[in-house]
Design a protein around this nucleic acid. Structure first.
Length: 412
DNA sequence: TCTGGGGTCCTACATCGT
DNA sequence: TCTGACGATGTAGGACCC
């Protein structure tokens, strides 16, 4: 007689991913406070030129740049566990971090390298368990339910196997949480970091989940957490004790109902192995704030370059889009967006530049700008749109699209 | 000396056609 | 013809995540 398999979902999180990759390259930094971020100066290139690829591991410590010497804007992407001891962490401004730990070594992000490792660890997982949902560069959900051995020890033995396989193929460690659903698995993977495994069953809700802060729920951010605190709700258990109607009154229909479900550990979202992108964008923060009139030429150049980059991204990945958007961030950190949906799809840099330029006329430009961004949304596969256009043309009903005019006479 | 870049999703609101 | 309800769609902003 066979029993129905219990739903077992794993959340796997690479440990200090970006920093750990750098430590493989520079093993002499092991155990030291290191932060990854900034990235405007090519530290690696400078060290490479001086020492050559093979000698990187012998570069003396005093040659690495320190946080206290860092100049420019930027935030920390990740920090080694040694750096975290100083209170330094992700999303912190580099200048603030320099105060907390001036002697921490600061390295730029090597995105190509990180992407390579990302592909490698995900491949290692898929060899063992095929149902994998991508959750960014260093995280995945895995459906253990029907994988051979996925039920053993609540999922612990399969988690151990995956950890071992990832380490063999990349030299990196990760933490895994296995639970009845994605929501709990995500929380569980944080229980035992680094290089840990946590198993949570439905019956553990009150003892393991309810004592946690509401902020630990994936989806409750700083704003919602603050509001909950104002309402004297600090833990998930306190959240679970509230009437769903009261939560809806305070947070709205969707959020209120969702909070209630989450606090009771209920989440039926499936592990999704494939998804289509919704938008693609490029944005950049300037070294110094720029003015629309006085720095018109520089802004125009950056703007055109951003449009070209988005167009390149779309074309490389085989997408076209219909909604063109811009984003501006002023020197006081306030941002505005404008967008416009066209009658036709495009992935053409000139067309994007032209329409983005028109959107600029709809935003205030008296204040200095610190960031400029360009976005293309309402995406479709280029081949699908082309096929449809061909069919429409064959039927003789297609309206002829005229090419966009050149983008002269624009603000910048 | 503040606060990156690339995304998704939700909400509120305006507009338009029926 | 006027008015209101309602759904679809577009737009703006913001919360949140990695």
């Amino acid at each position: 007689m066979t029993t129905e398999p219990v739903r077992r979902i794993a959340h796997l999180d690479m440990d200090a991913f970006f920093a750990s990759i750098e430590l493989l390259r520079y093993p002499q930094l092991k155990g030291l406070p290191v932060v990854i971020g900034g990235g405007r100066r090519s530290v690696d290139d400078a060290l490479l030129v001086k020492h050559g690829e093979r000698a990187l591991r012998f570069i003396p410590l005093e040659e690495f740049p320190r946080l206290k010497d860092y100049v420019g804007r930027g935030v920390i992407t990740t920090a080694t566990y040694a750096a975290r001891q100083f209170g330094v962490g992700s999303a912190m401004g580099l200048m603030k971090a320099a105060k907390l730990c001036p002697d921490a070594i600061v390295l730029p992000v090597d995105f190509d390298e990180v992407r390579r490792y990302s592909r490698a660890f995900k491949e290692a997982i898929r060899e063992v368990a095929p149902l994998v949902e991508d959750r960014g560069i260093d995280e995945v959900y895995i459906d253990f339910t029907d994988v051979p051995g996925g039920q053993r020890e609540g999922g612990r033995s399969l988690a151990r196997l995956i950890q071992r396989s990832i380490f063999e193929k990349t030299g990196l460690s990760c933490s895994v949480g296995v639970a009845p659903n994605k929501l709990i698995a995500k929380m569980a993977s944080e229980f035992n970091k680094p290089n840990g495994i946590s198993i949570v069953h439905e019956a553990d809700l009150q003892s393991l989940i309810w004592p946690l802060a509401c902020r630990k729920i994936n989806g409750i951010g700083p704003k919602a957490d603050e509001k909950l605190k104002r309402l004297h709700i600090h833990t998930i258990g306190e959240l679970a004790a509230q009437e769903v109607g009261w939560l809806i009154d305070n947070f709205g229909q969707a959020t209120g109902a969702w909070m209630h479900e989450a606090a009771w550990g209920r989440d039926s979202r499936p592990v999704v192995t494939e998804s289509e992108p919704v938008s693609m964008s490029r944005e950049t923060t300037f070294e110094r704030d720029l003015h629309a009139v006085r720095d018109k030429a520089a802004l125009g150049e950056v703007f055109t370059r951003l449009c070209e980059k988005v167009a390149e991204d779309l074309q490389r990945k085989g997408y076209v889009g219909k909604t063109i958007g811009i984003k501006l961030r002023y020197d006081d950190f306030k941002s505005v967006t404008r967008d416009q949906t066209l009658t036709h799809y495009t992935a053409d840099a000139q067309a994007i530049r032209h329409n983005a330029g028109l959107l600029l006329k709809r935003v205030p430009l008296a204040q200095r700008l610190r960031l400029l961004g360009v976005r293309v949304g309402t995406l479709a596969k280029a081949e699908d749109v082309a096929a449809l256009a061909q069919a429409t043309a064959a039927a003789g009903t297609g309206a002829e699209e005229s090419p966009p005019p050149p983008y002269t006479d624009q603000l910048f």
